[in-house]
């Protein structure tokens, strides 16, 4: 590069970037993430909402139908079943949090071989959901399954968990709880490492023990772990798909479907050619998720503000 007279004149004035460095640089660093987020998250959300106003088989011409897909949803018993099942998932999946906490408390001690016990408890989380689903569906088998073997020993009649429309969803949730509890356990185990021993000491001096110690001293200090456990469990509940697909394929007669599975069936599966209807289901699921996302963001934001 050679200096030209013009540059020499401009030299005292700093370049535009130099002048705006403080304001621009963060955005430059954020740019790749923003681009990807816009392209892979925001744009598809917009597209889903747009498609939900059309009647489209995914192959031919799309036809604008306005709110018709949503109107039909209101009157669709399969949709209602899926929505209720989603609520069941949300509610009962949360059992993973106290479950994980108690296993973590139990394992938070120093005895020989504790690392092995910890790994054994953690091991279901490492398994693929597909494997978990298969193992549990064998466990539940109506005649040969282990569950009925055990029930038979104590004189209880055979139950067909996955074949009974009233029980099947709970059966799948129980299968999902196995790895999810392990996940929460590991979160709490790391959380327990950070518990302040001085506060426990102080609590002891004030004669706190047992439940009171847990409730007033330990659990408040585990709040960050609880929050993360809550977030991952809620997200896990709303994303439940693999287990349902493996264990019951949505059956018996559609009674174990959740919204994500129903959307898949309507839009993408072997017989599903209703992209618009599937997109409408996806939008409803998105709105449900939005409630939680808003709550998470709000609580993280208020946490930040307090610092």
């Amino acid at each position: 590069m050679t200096d030209t007279p013009a540059q020499q004149v401009a030299a005292p004035q700093r370049s535009w970037y130099k002048r705006n460095e403080i304001a621009v640089t963060p955005w430059l660093f954020l740019a790749p993430a923003i681009l990807f987020f816009a392209f892979y998250v925001i744009w598809p959300i917009y597209q889903s909402i747009a498609i939900s106003f059309y009647d489209w088989d995914g192959l031919g011409e799309a036809q604008y139908v306005g709110m018709a897909n949503y109107v039909e949803l209101m009157d669709d018993s399969a949709f209602e079943v899926s929505l209720w099942n989603n609520l069941k998932w949300l509610l009962f999946y949360l059992l993973a949090i106290p479950g994980g906490l108690f296993i973590a408390l139990f394992l938070n001690q120093t005895v020989t071989g504790i690392r092995i016990y910890k790994s054994l408890f953690f091991f279901p989380f490492v398994l693929s959901q597909v494997v978990v689903g298969l193992v549990f569906s064998w466990f539940y088998l109506p005649n040969e399954g282990l569950l009925n073997g055990v029930l038979g020993l104590v004189g209880l009649g055979p139950v067909n968990v996955l074949g009974d429309p009233t029980m099947a969803t709970y059966g799948i949730i129980a299968a999902g709880l196995w790895p999810q509890t392990a996940y929460c356990m590991i979160l709490y185990l790391t959380g327990l490492n950070a518990v302040d021993p001085e506060q426990i000491e102080a609590g002891r001096l004030d004669n706190a023990k047992g439940w009171k110690m847990l409730w007033y001293i330990i659990i408040p200090q585990l709040k960050p772990a609880t929050f993360i456990a809550f977030v991952v469990t809620i997200i896990g509940a709303l994303r439940s798909f693999d287990l349902i697909s493996i264990m019951t394929n949505g059956g018996p007669f559609g009674q174990t479907r959740v919204l994500s599975f129903y959307m898949f069936e309507k839009a993408l599966s072997e017989y599903g050619f209703r992209m618009g209807y599937g997109a409408a289901i996806a939008v409803v699921l998105f709105l449900i998720m939005l409630v939680f996302i808003a709550y998470f963001l709000w609580s993280m934001w208020s946490e930040e503000k307090r610092r």
């Binding site: 059956g251 018996p252 007669f253 599966s269 072997e270 017989y271 599903g272 050619f273």
Partner: peptide, 14 residues
């Protein structure tokens, strides 16, 4: 048709 078949077969199972 695909959609009729899917709904109907579910009904048959029920």
């Amino acid at each position: 048709p695909a959609e009729m078949a899917a709904e109907a077969m579910q009904g048959l199972q029920e």
